[in-house]
Simulated scan of single mutants.
Amino acid sequence: MTSRAASRPVGTVTRGTTNPNRLRRMDRWIAAAHGAELRRAADPVAVDLGYGAAPWTAVELLARLREKAPRTRVVGVEIEPARVAAAKPYERDGLVFRHGGFEIPVPQRPLLVRAANVLRQYDEAEVAAVWERLCARLAPADPARGSRGGLLVEGTCDEIGRRHVWVALGPEGPRTVTFATRLGSLERPSDLAERLPKALIHRNVPGEPVHSFLRDFDRAWAAAAPYASYGTRQRWIRTVRDLTADWPVVDGPSRWRQGEVTVAWGALAPRGVPQS
């Protein structure tokens, strides 16, 4: 991943596929998990990195974050100039669009960078450097104020937002992995494997932690089959509750009811990769 000239954006043009409401699950998780950080900040800035051929995801991110933190501003960043030009008519109070890439062309350190479906086309070997670059741009932690700093949310979803998997990273590096789904679309939890982010998707093989996790997830799902008579949501909640016996699940029932589960990154990190 290199730029041809120092003044040019860092990265490559993505396919730009986007749909309204595609990132709603990710947005709602961000608002719940990071809303307090955004509210505490005097001028909270969030970046929608690689929003694609249409600006819907940036428009929606602003609306969802402002429900939790009304002062939030969103900057949509795209490496393709024509996409930036097409998005300009959608600018409004708190929402602007900029030409750029992984260098994040905003003057301040953002409290949030969301990079959804951006690294899918990159090689796995390139991911660590991209993460490091983006994390270095985040707002730093401030323990005196109880702040853990900015958040990078990087992951993948399907075209209509039924299935997501994302990694959340702070200035110090990766923290957690979240699996999120519309429960009615799920036959078994391992269906989410096809949406693993680039750092994990090629590691879903025997001997790797993420493969073991998905195997145990499917086993717990099968064991929870009797709860299906109470609905898929109750079966999912029971499944995740059983997972907590062996895996470091870091959220609770209020998120499980949304069709989510969040696990500490260190438990799923690829073999041979340093754990934060």
Rank of each mutant, 00 (worst) to 15 (best):
Thr244Lys: 15
Leu119Gln: 01
Cys135Pro: 04
Ala228Asn: 07
Cys157His: 12
Ala31Phe: 14
Ala69Tyr: 15
Gly161Ala: 07
Glu172Asp: 15
Ala128Glu: 09
Val130Pro: 02
Pro9Asp: 03
Arg83Gly: 03
Arg238Lys: 15
Ile104Val: 15
Val118Gln: 06
Gly149Ala: 07
Pro55Ile: 09
Ser185Arg: 07
Val167Asn: 06
Thr232Ala: 11
Ala42Val: 15
Gln258Ser: 10
Leu214His: 11
Leu62Pro: 06
Ala141Tyr: 10
Leu214Met: 13
Arg40Gln: 11
Lys88Pro: 01
Arg40Asp: 08
Arg145Asp: 07
Val165Gly: 02
Pro206Lys: 11
Ala53Val: 09
Cys135Thr: 12
Glu67Lys: 15
Glu80Leu: 08
Ala32Ile: 08
Ala32Thr: 13
Pro44Ala: 08
Ala223Pro: 12
Leu65His: 13
Val106Arg: 05
Gly52Tyr: 09
Glu126Asp: 13
Gly150Asn: 09
Cys135Glu: 12
Arg255Trp: 11
Gly149Phe: 14
Leu95Glu: 01
Arg98Ala: 08
Trp56Met: 01
Cys135Tyr: 08
Tyr122Ile: 00
Arg98Gly: 00
Leu186Cys: 07
Arg92His: 05
Ala267Tyr: 09
Gly146Pro: 12
Ala223Asp: 15
Leu186Asn: 08
Pro89Phe: 10
Ala125Arg: 11
Asp158Arg: 13
Leu61Asn: 03
Asp48Gln: 08
Ala33Gly: 01
Ser147Thr: 14
Asn19His: 12
Arg215His: 14
Gly16His: 05
Ala245Ile: 04
Phe102Gln: 03
Pro107Ser: 09
Glu208Gly: 07
Gln275Thr: 12
Val47Phe: 11
Pro171Leu: 10
Thr262Ile: 09
Trp247Asp: 08
Arg64Glu: 15
Ser254Met: 03
Pro197Cys: 07
Thr239Tyr: 05
Glu126Cys: 01
Gly207Met: 11
Gly161Asn: 10
Ala46Asn: 02
Pro197Ile: 07
Ala32Asn: 04
Thr72Asp: 02
Gly173Phe: 13
Val205Gly: 00
Arg175Lys: 13
Arg64Tyr: 04
Glu159Gln: 12
Ala87Gly: 06
Val75Phe: 05
Asp43Gln: 12
Val77Lys: 09
Gly52Thr: 09
Ala54Glu: 13
Thr18Arg: 02
Cys135Asn: 11
Arg15Asn: 02
Ile79Ala: 05
Arg24Met: 06
Pro107Lys: 13
Pro143Gln: 10
Arg175Met: 09
Ala116Ile: 03
Leu38Cys: 03
Thr178His: 10
Ala53Asn: 11
Thr12Glu: 09
Leu200Gln: 06
Ile79Glu: 04
Trp247Gly: 07
Leu49Val: 05
Arg39Gln: 12
Ala128Met: 00
Asp123Gln: 14
Ala58Tyr: 06
Arg40Pro: 00
Ala141Arg: 13
Asp27Phe: 14
Ala128Ile: 00
Asp251Ile: 14
Glu208Lys: 12
Val75Gln: 03
Val167Met: 12
Arg83Trp: 15
Arg271Pro: 00
Ala87Ile: 05
Leu200Ile: 10
Arg175Thr: 11
Thr232His: 11
Ala125Pro: 00
Ala264Pro: 02
Thr244Leu: 06
Tyr230Cys: 06
Val59Leu: 14
Tyr227Arg: 08
Tyr122Asp: 00
Gly150Ala: 06
Leu214Gln: 03
Leu65Asp: 05
Thr262His: 04
Ala245Gly: 06
Gln108Cys: 05
Leu214Val: 04
Val130Asn: 01
Asp216Phe: 14
Leu49Gln: 04
Leu62Ile: 07
Ala116Pro: 06
Asp93Cys: 00
Val96Phe: 00
